[in-house]
């Protein structure tokens, strides 16, 4: 099951891709309110966005991106029906992948 929601829309020759990922994005600086211990860092480090196997954008993140990250970007040259693929990798080595089509 994938927790990445993607919406890609073509408008005036530019494709705007919006996506929502499901991730705790712990900085490693926050304390657990019950135990007082630091919550270990757990955040997405890299998001790769591809369209038709071409990398459109790579995002490198720190824990400073909000929980359940939202990301939007635009690119040119997309057409309705083209595939969009998004993959993230976090600092624990987990990775998730989702794909959708431009509408």
């Amino acid at each position: 099951m994938s927790d990445i929601k993607i919406r890609a829309k073509l408008k005036d020759g530019e494709t705007e891709v919006k996506c929502l990922m499901s991730h705790p994005m712990e900085t490693g600086l926050r304390k657990d309110s019950k135990t007082g211990e630091l919550v270990p860092a757990h955040f997405i480090q890299e998001v790769v966005c591809k369209s038709k196997d071409q990398v459109v954008m790579t995002a490198n993140w720190s824990g400073g991106v909000s929980k359940n990250p939202y990301l939007a970007f635009k690119f040119k040259g997309g057409e309705v029906g083209d595939p969009i693929e998004i993959t993230w990798t976090d600092n624990m080595g987990e990775t998730q992948n989702a794909a959708d089509k431009i509408t």
Partner: peptide, 24 residues
């Protein structure tokens, strides 16, 4: 922020210089 750099986005050739996200 304690570690100021939050995100960096490497744009491919077709990407438009536009990014939007939510930060702490």
């Amino acid at each position: 922020n304690q570690t100021p750099l939050i995100a960096s986005f490497d744009l491919g050739d077709s990407a438009v210089p536009f990014v939007s996200t939510r930060i702490k």
